[in-house]
């Protein structure tokens, strides 16, 4: 398993410069207080990992991986874990920087606000990964992008429809109720999303004719 995770992480080492540039942009913007770009690095983690699907497909890695011990079982798992590792690392870096910048600027750490923003971006990133990866496995990296656009468009249309015609008071009541435990609820939701997404991807991969 470790070998397969390493393979995915080594594939993105050439993107370190992109991460470094984004980090500088984030720090500059945070000091100026113009825009909160906490989401940038975790979001970029998923984007960069998405590019590995294209390389895998181009070099027919999936077929080769199956010829290696544990290849069929570990390929999908490794892709998810490598992405999560990258998201966690970038989130930790952003969290430390956010606290430091907040302290340097105001001599106090705005714990609640920073945690809220970072959790929000983490949730959005995990949501993105959970949606994209099964489409990548199902349709391949080329077609997946088109399907992804279709999914986003579909969700936006359905969402718009729901907002217009559905009474949200019950949902708001539930949100008020869980306010104190929001971190736990968010964490459980993220783990659930990832687990369901992983199981779908694994099922697609196992059934796929490679």
């Amino acid at each position: 398993m470790l070998g397969f995770i390493k393979k995915d992480l080594l594939m993105i080492k050439s993107n370190i410069k992109i991460f470094a540039i984004l980090l500088i942009i984030y720090v500059v913007m945070a000091f100026q207080g113009q825009m909160d770009l906490s989401f940038l690095l975790p979001f970029m983690s998923v984007m960069v990992m998405m590019s590995t699907f294209s390389y895998d497909s181009y070099n027919k890695w999936d077929a080769y991986a199956i010829s290696l011990p544990g290849g069929r079982k570990n390929s999908v798992k490794a892709k998810y874990l490598a992405t999560i590792i990258l998201i966690i690392v970038t989130t930790i870096i952003i969290t430390i920087l956010s606290f430091t910048i907040s302290y340097v600027k105001t001599k106090i750490i705005d714990f609640e606000n920073i945690t809220g923003t970072i959790f929000g971006s983490l949730f959005a990133t995990i949501l993105l990964q959970s949606f994209i990866y099964p489409t990548m496995y199902k349709f391949g990296p080329e077609k997946a992008r088109i399907w992804l656009m279709a999914i986003i468009f579909g969700v936006a249309v359905i969402g718009g429809f729901i907002i217009q015609y559905v009474d949200f008071s019950a949902i708001i009541n539930i949100l008020n109720l869980i306010e104190a435990y929001w971190i736990v609820v968010f964490l459980i939701a993220m783990i659930l999303m990832l687990y369901i997404s992983y199981k779908i991807s694994e099922r697609i991969y196992f059934k796929k004719e490679i």
Binding site: M1, G3, K6, K7, L10, M11, A63, G70
Partner: peptide, 22 residues
């Protein structure tokens, strides 16, 4: 395998590091 291998952005050293754990 014919035309099936590691993604081409990896290096021979990367392959060594990966295969050690496979």
């Amino acid at each position: 395998l014919d035309d099936m291998f590691f993604p081409e952005i990896l290096t021979p050293n990367d392959i060594n590091s990966i295969m050690k754990d496979i």
